[in-house]
Design a protein around this nucleic acid. Structure first.
Lengths: 120, 120
DNA sequence: TCCATAATTCGATAAACGTGGAAATATGGA
DNA sequence: TCCATATTTCCACGTTTATCGAATTATGGA
């Protein structure tokens, strides 16, 4: 993950509704939620929500998949992992004191525990 | 660290020159660097640099101290620690798979594991 | 085909951001 | 006191953001 991607990701999370949406998606796990449900839970009108979800997707933090009439958004744990990796390496002294920083969905044993080091 | 502070911190880091400045300050350690040196290293004119450093300070990510005519800026590792803690807890599934996320200057075994859960 | 639902795109608007030159504010030395 | 240096503050200026209503684009059912 290079600096430009990191800035994009940080910028995507640096907004009330987007941070809330991302947190929500992290909580619900792999399956994700339809755009409408996210907007409803957050009290954001659909066009605004769409704008924010597009920003998160553009930053690579969420993925979308259509299921009939609904478009489900899911948190991309790998991207969040990379972001955490970059911050740890570049904005935290980097050395020693960090044992293991890994970002994975709840308990789903998915994508986790090995801290895939694709950092810049 | 509450959501508002997190958004402020993320927003502060989500900018090319500010991210570069913060990384630089993390590298040099506790002592920090004078505003002028930072601007020079980054190729940013003083008024702009001042603007960005103020943003980082306002977000609590850096501290400033005057030393004669120079104003030294230093990375605030505790703040970065809190930010990492929030992201780990709220944007990473939170549970298990994270062993230890700590942000400290070089080897200084600084604080960690506080993660104050004042989430919304 | 026609209609309803889900979501996005478009348009306008107000606010915030990033930039750099110029002026103002410390601080220290001659 | 006067001057030089370091930094910040002020002031435009143009760009990007966030918002929300309205129009548009999928999708599926009757």
């Amino acid at each position: 993950m290079d600096a430009a991607a990191v800035i994009k990701a940080l910028g995507a999370l640096a907004q009330e509704h987007r941070l809330a949406a991302f947190r929500l998606l992290v909580q619900v796990g792999e399956e994700g939620l339809p755009a409408g449900v996210i907007g409803e839970k957050l009290g954001v009108v659909s066009s605004s929500m769409s704008f924010h979800l597009a920003a998160l997707a553009n930053a690579g933090l969420v993925t979308q998949r259509r299921q009939s009439r609904l478009i489900f958004y899911s948190a991309d744990y790998t991207a969040m992992n990379s972001l955490m990796g970059y911050l740890t390496e570049n904005c935290c002294g980097g050395i020693a004191c960090i044992d293991n920083v890994s970002c994975c969905p709840a308990q789903t044993g998915a994508a986790g525990s090995d801290a895939e080091k694709d950092v810049a």
